[in-house]
Structures are given as C-alpha cells and as structure tokens.
Design a protein around this nucleic acid. Structure first.
Lengths: 339, 339
DNA sequence: CTGTTAGCGCATTCAG
DNA sequence: CTGAATGCGCTAACAG
C-alpha cells in the first residue's frame, strides 16, 4: 500500500495525496475529501522510513535509562512516552543496566538516524563518552535525573533534599543516622544524595556514620540483615536513610529479618517517591520526586529545541521541587542514646 | 556521514563499502580492512531509515502492552528487549493503559512500516480490532499473557494455576475464600483466573463468594478496607485471592487499615511473581509466572517466524510453567468457621 | 490548486 | 572481486 495506489484510486497525483494528508489547507476541499476517502478505504498508512529518509526527521525520541524494573524510571518513561505521543513523537527506549558500555551502544543505535533527540539518564555526565558523542553529533538531548553544570538537565536538588531529611530526623531525636546506598560509582544521584547526608549530619552537629554501600540488589537484604544483627543496640543506627525507594524496601525487610520493628526500633526512609511506596505497610517515608513530570519536562525541552533547531544549553536546566512524604516507616527515636 | 563519504575515504565504490560492512566474506581482506578503517575513522553509522526503505526490514519489534508501571510488564519487556537486542532487533513500546482505542493507535503506528513484527498484550484477543488489522496486514505477531485458540500465544495456564491455589488454601483450612480482581472486562487473564477460582472452589466443595471487582487502582485500598471493616468476622473471608500482585499488595494494606493482621487473621495471595514481592514484609505469597521468559520466548517465536518468512499459527503457542511461592502473606486458617 | 520530478541513503542486481 | 546504476516510498521544489 503506497502513496501511488492512493493517488490512482483518488485520480490525483502522489503530490496531491501527500499534501492532502500533510497540509490539508493547501488542497481544495473536494479533492481532499476524495483523497481521504481513498486513503481510508485502502487502509493506507504512510511509510515511516521513506518519510524519515526524505524529511530527515524521524519523529522518534530515543530514551536511554538504567532499567525499567525500577519503578522510578518506569514512571518517568511513562511521562516521556505520553508527552511525546501528544507531540507526535514515538519513543525508543534502551536500558543500560548501569553499564557504561551499554550507554554507548544505545547512543550508537540512536545516532544511526533513528532519533531526532535523546533523553538520557547516565551514570556520570562528566565522563560519559556516549554523551560526548551525542554532543559531537549535535543531536539534541536532555539529561534526566542527572545534574551537571555543562548539560541541560531536568532533576531535583538531591543534596538539599537529603540534607533537609537529615534535619528532620534530627528533630525527631535521631542521632545515629546511617546512609544506605547502591554503588556510588554507578550513579551521580547516589553521590549527590550522599553529599546531602554529610552536609545534613554536619549541620545537625551529628557524627557521620560509615556509608553502607550495597553492591548487588540481589544480596542486599541478607547483607543488611546480617549487619543489623551484628550490631548492638548502642551502636546500631536508629535511622537508615536509603538512597532510593527500592533499597528502602529492602532495608525494611532486612530489619524484619533482624528482628527489628520499623519504625519503632528502626526508622527507614527512601528517595524517589515511587507510587507503590504509598501502598506498602508501613507506608514508605520518602522524598518524593515528580518522576512523570521529569519525563514530561524533558520531552518539552527537547521538542522545543528541535522545533527551534537550536541546541539546548545548560542554561535550560530545570530543577523541580521535591517533597517529603511522612509515611509510616519513620518515627521519633525512642530514647536518646549516649553519644 | 554517508556511505559515499566512506567510499571516497577508502578509495572504493559505495557498493564495496556496503558489502564490506554487511557481507564481509564477499570482499577481499585488504579492501575490507581499508573500508573498516575508513568507516571507524569517520565514525560512520549506516542510516537506519535508508536501509529499512531499501531492504523492507526495519529490524524493529513493536511491543504493545498495558503499562510499564506494573512490574509484570516491565519484567516481560526487559526480557523482550534483551532477547531482541541479542538478535539484532530494536524494540518500540506502546502502552495502552488497558484502553482498546490505544491498542489500535499503537498498531497503526507499527503498521506504518516501522516494525517487522509485534508482540502484544491485549484486553481481549477475541475482539481486538487491532489484532484483526495485524492479521490482515500479515505482519507477524505473538500474543503474550493472552491465551486464545486462534492465535500464537505465550502464557501460563491461568485457570489451572488459580484452581491449584484454591486447593492449597483448602488444605490450609480456608473455607471462605474470596477473589479480588480488577475489571474482568479489561483483561482476559482476569477472566481466566476467575474461572480458575470458580473451578477450584467447586472442586474443593467450597461455596463461592462474590467476586470483589476493584475498578480503579487509585481507590482500591480504601474500597477494600471499608469492605473488610463492614464485614463481621463470621462473614469475612479468611483468604483473599488476588488476581495480580499489585492488587495483593493493596489488599494487604487494606487489611492493615481494617485492623486485620496478615496472615494471622487474613491470608492474601497474589498472581504474577513480580520480583519486588520477595522483598516485602510479609513476603508475598503468589503464583509466579516467568515474566522475563514470556518476553524471551515471544521474541524467539517471532524472530524464527520472520526468518522463515512464515506466519505463526496458534499451533506455535507456548504454555510456560507457573509455580506457587509460599511467601508469608498466606497461612493456615485459624479456626474452622461454621459453614 | 495540482502535477512532474529529483533525491534522501542504502542494498542489490547486473556488468565487467 | 569490484563498480555503475536502479529504486525502495515519500516530500518538496518547481512548473504549469
């Protein structure tokens, strides 16, 4: 089913069909109707590749993100996909599983002319060679969740968010507050959030505790549980500040396995605000980021830049508001431990 | 960066470049090296649209599914994406949010020549007009999770799984077992699982309880909680069999809000086996389906059929094994209630 | 307002 | 083993 068939059926030229379908205003009403009817009767759908080849615009936005198994990114992706669809763009996702090599491969595919623009979540904007290639190719892009002075980013203020959270925990009487995180190396968010922890602890006049870095999610629960079991009540943290919600959920499980009640004996907080957290018992106490909106705003930025044919600069970066959801996994410290 | 530039740089014709890159065996070793070096030096990536237009194969697999916010589908999608990538295919997802209209729109986009094949999860295979159009267009496809005698499907045996579960609950002493489900109309899985419930209850000689149909996930928790609160201990179910894991999690929350302990006072089971369920407290008791494998097998089927250029029939359908994960949200009934 | 035509970048005959 | 030439389906000049 080609444009030619429609032209023949409607008794016009291919150019007229193309115009009738793409710029209806430029065609006589009667002709247009004839074309439209012929097209719909034949079930004609314009060939995307031919159109892309001709116009040099694919109407596709590439998306590079760590994984869709983490609801944070799934939520963001839905925001991207629906906003993109509304603007007439399809979306093509690539997951990196936090591996640098896969970032590059994804960008390669996207550079094959498949995408008009790219939204990406990378491990380290400062060092991503994939990002570098994107810049060199002058393909419009926006970073989501990442935060970097030289790139257009849509994110929240991670440091501030965690620092505020620490202050809040302080007012709840917590003094032994430990941070739990995935590999710092794999994520600039994790590093920023950890900086927020240090900052918050310092400001609250509390002594920093060693970072609990959990390398693999698969073994996280066991590791955390045995750590909690090993520690005496006096040395154990009274609050665990987790770098993300999925990890916070595992902290809660670990506490349970170690015989600690949450939040009575151990407070646990998350970061991300995944929807599921609200349906858990205890409801997750967490810093909520507007995940769908991060996706939406990224697309808006990208679409605007593609329309204006002007590259985005770091000046376009957007910092969205975060908020703390009290939840139920976090409570006042039971007694003031000696320092 | 076109093939022409590479040809010039390597001092050969475009045809030779094309061959050197796509059919290395058909080119002299020395020539090939020269081409490869020129290509990599210039950072050449073949234009996907041009190639697609020429070969009539996009190397893209379309994926139509309800939502990526439900980890079931996210897990399946990851299975699809990684298997597809290994076979040299990219993947293009469309979410329908369980709306028929969006199924059609997705298929339309895919029919625009963008996809060599499609994997889809539809509401109702028997009535999906989108599916119908796919068949008419002779575009290879596989249904995932759906189950229908006339289409190639990759799924588990939903009826049997729930029936077995009911039998198990029976041996645990449960008699008042109710099923909780999303809208039956929106999903054939839900209907099949409900049939399994009826079958299981009948076989166990238990009296069926009215289906608790929860139309909107947003209000599910409140609805379920008030239902549980309204019922006396004698009329309340002792076990809630949920049609999917996300709903089971909400049932647990609702029980908590209604002051019922899970599993002591109310057993709750799910269906899907999302990874997260294992990290919850109580760990979700659920029927595990191999979500990633459902995706993987769907791709394998599709790829094989595309290679053979032979359409898939219902005879290719695959039923994968499910299993029950005991978890912690399900326990023996406390006392035998009078019937 | 409509038709003719060129060419987007590539893979693939067909010659040599 | 390599090169020249064709056309995939479409849109955008340009002409009428």
């Amino acid at each position: 089913m080609r444009i030619q068939d429609v032209a023949q059926a409607a008794g016009v030229s291919v150019a007229t069909v193309s115009r009738a379908l793409n710029e209806p205003g430029k065609v006589a009403a009667e002709t247009r109707t004839r074309v439209e009817q012929a097209a719909s009767r034949l079930g004609y759908t314009p060939n995307a590749s031919a159109r892309t080849l001709r116009t040099q615009r694919s109407k596709v936005i590439g998306v590079v993100l760590p994984t869709l198994l983490n609801p944070v990114f799934a939520e963001c992706f839905e925001g991207i996909a629906s906003t993109a669809a509304a603007a007439g763009y399809a979306v093509q996702p690539f997951t990196t599983e936090y591996q640098i090599g896969r970032e590059s491969r994804a960008v390669n595919s996207l550079l094959a002319g498949n995408a008009d623009g790219v939204i990406l979540v990378v491990s380290n904007p400062a060092r991503s060679s994939a990002l570098q290639r994107l810049v060199e190719a002058r393909l419009p892009y926006v970073l989501a969740y990442n935060r970097h002075a030289k790139h257009p980013c849509v994110s929240v203020h991670n440091e501030a968010a965690v620092a505020e959270l620490i202050a809040h925990l302080g007012t709840l009487g917590h003094q032994r507050i430990a941070m739990v995180s995935g590999q710092l190396q794999a994520s600039d968010r994790a590093r920023q959030r950890h900086r927020g922890y240090r900052q918050g602890m310092q400001r609250a006049g509390l002594q920093e505790m060693p970072l609990i870095e959990v390398p693999f999610v698969e073994t996280a629960v066991q590791e955390l549980a045995s750590l909690l079991r090993r520690q005496s009540a006096a040395e154990r943290p009274t609050a665990l500040v987790s770098s993300n919600d999925l990890l916070a959920i595992r902290c809660i499980r670990a506490a349970h396995l170690a015989g600690l009640r949450v939040p009575q004996e151990l407070s646990v907080t998350g970061f991300d605000g995944i929807a599921l957290g609200e349906d858990l018992t205890p409801m997750l106490s967490t810093i909520v980021q507007p995940n769908a909106e991060i996706g939406q705003r990224s697309v808006e930025l990208l679409v605007r830049s593609m329309a204006a044919d002007a590259p985005l600069s770091a000046a376009s970066s957007i910092t969205l508001a975060h908020r703390f959801r009290a939840g139920e996994s976090c409570a006042a410290a039971r007694r003031t431990p000696s320092v």
